[in-house]
């Protein structure tokens, strides 16, 4: 497996895109991609939490769980860390960065159950990345998440006005649009990438 930071970034960003190729974070993908503003808010919140969560979980895994031989607690510890972290970030932003908080405040609690965050922290461990590579990996995934969700929200804004039969309105047509976007992203597969 490659250790070139640029390749890891591109692989996480486009080739193994977290939503369209790895099928992670689908709930927010379909839930908040209805307008461009909500999509932006969700992606900023996600970028923020994903980076911090990766740093914290990586450190705890390598300096606490591994030396003490407690790897089996990984799932429980990581999800609790993420849940606490989200709360902490929310309070911190509310107090110190009002503008940022109003932009992504309501999306922060939703992120706790966003499987993309937990998956990225697990994958960064499973791929045996160093802390720097893990950061690049998390950054690529968060930007990939943002890219797809923003692109897709533009499509969905148009879909609102499309003349559709009633049974296809809403979710079904969104899924089918997602299928076409995923087909475009599938073109990158085989370029290079991380093992899925």
């Amino acid at each position: 497996m490659t250790t070139n930071p640029l390749l890891i970034f591109i692989a996480a960003f486009i080739v193994n895109n977290i939503i369209l190729i790895r099928y992670l974070g689908l709930c927010p993908f379909f839930g908040v991609s209805t307008t461009l503003t909500t999509a932006f808010g969700m992606s900023t919140a996600c970028l923020f939490v994903m980076l911090i969560a990766t740093w914290v979980t990586w450190t705890i895994y390598h300096f606490l769980l591994l030396p003490l031989d407690l790897i089996f607690l990984r799932t429980a510890v990581f999800i609790l860390i993420i849940a606490t972290l989200v709360q902490f970030v929310e309070i911190f932003l509310k107090k110190n960065f009002k503008a940022l908080y109003s932009a992504m405040g309501i999306y922060l609690p939703l992120i706790t159950t966003n499987c993309a965050i937990l998956a990225v922290t697990f994958l960064a461990i499973d791929y045996r990345f160093s802390l720097i590579l893990a950061t690049i990996f998390a950054l690529g995934n968060a930007l990939g998440f943002g890219l797809v969700i923003v692109l897709f929200s533009a499509i969905r804004e148009r879909l609102e006005f499309a003349p559709l039969s009633r049974s296809f309105k809403g979710y079904p047509i969104a899924f089918i649009a997602a299928s076409l976007v995923a087909l475009a992203f599938l073109g990158f597969i085989g370029l290079f990438g991380l093992p899925l």
Partner: peptide, 29 residues
């Protein structure tokens, strides 16, 4: 392509449309 992500999205979209049509009709918006 059915084994890849596009197939999965297409299939669940069609299944959801099928449900909307025949089993639980959505409220007219």
């Amino acid at each position: 392509f059915m084994i890849f992500p596009p197939g999965a999205f297409l299939l669940i979209g069609l299944l959801k449309a099928f449900i909307n049509k025949f089993i639980i009709k959505p409220e007219p918006t």
